[in-house]
Design a protein around this nucleic acid. Structure first.
Length: 227
DNA sequence: GGCCAGGACACCA
DNA sequence: TGGTGTCATGGC
């Protein structure tokens, strides 16, 4: 871990990210419930594939807790086909629905009243919900200040030299949360900016040799040369 | 036709 | 505790 990375540096990187397109206004789903489904379906998959599966569920009137709760995993799986790993994800969605029904009566909104650490622990105990999925649900569905770390975050910040790139998930999450104010709107937009940058620049420039963000950071003395 | 995408888990040493 | 195999579709 680059322990010397400062709160100011993370704030400056965010300012640079935001300067390009302003507030991302980014929300991975139309409702908090849809956000939860999306967080599971997007595991190791592109969001465009997830959108197709969500659209299928919407067309069939299945985009609600009640409808999905009644649907067996064997019938849900084919509807999730486009998101990949559909058999696995059908079981994971069902596990989440069972948790949501048991703990919150099927109402995602009620998660917001839970103490963040306790809610995170409960989510992580659900089969198929790992740290990134839990943090996505916490931040984007339950409005809790939990920083989401994903593959783009690891890639971009290791290229900036602010992370080594081999840190554990929790180490990277702490890296951000120890240096940024616990602010839901900030975490929401910071992660959104990272994803949007990752989707265009990192894909177009897979080696990041000519990454505009990297150049801007270098000009301002941000980031570090990699040894 | 190969590579990769916003992970997580079971299994094994 | 850490490494490895598995799950699978769709876009480029």
């Amino acid at each position: 871990m680059e322990a010397s990375a400062s709160a100011r540096e993370l704030a400056d990187v965010y300012a640079l990210l935001r300067r390009k397109r302003g507030p991302a206004g980014w929300w991975p789903g139309e409702t908090p419930f849809e956000v939860c489904l999306g967080a599971i379906l997007v595991q190791n998959t592109s969001w465009t594939n997830v959108e197709k599966a969500l659209a299928t569920l919407r067309e069939r009137g299945l985009l609600s807790f009640g409808a999905l709760e009644r649907l067996p995993a064997s019938r849900l799986a084919p509807l999730l086909r486009s998101s990949g790993y559909f058999n696995v994800k059908a079981r994971r969605v069902k596990a989440f629905l069972a948790f949501l029904g048991r703990e919150f009566g099927g109402h995602v909104e009620r998660m917001a009243g839970e103490e963040p650490q306790a809610l995170r622990a409960k989510l992580l105990a659900v089969n198929g919900i790992g740290p990134e999925t839990a943090d996505s649900i916490l931040l984007y569905a339950a409005s809790q200040p939990s920083f989401v770390v994903d593959a783009y975050t690891r890639r971009i910040f290791s290229r900036l030299g602010l992370l080594r790139g081999d840190e554990s998930y929790d180490q990277m999450r702490s890296f951000f949360m120890d240096r940024l104010p616990r602010d839901v709107a900030l975490y929401n937009d910071y992660h959104a900016q990272i994803v949007l940058l990752g989707k265009d620049t990192c894909r177009a420039l897979p080696r990041c040799a000519d990454c505009p963000l990297l150049r801007r950071c270098r000009r301002r003395g941000l980031g570090r040369r990699r040894s």
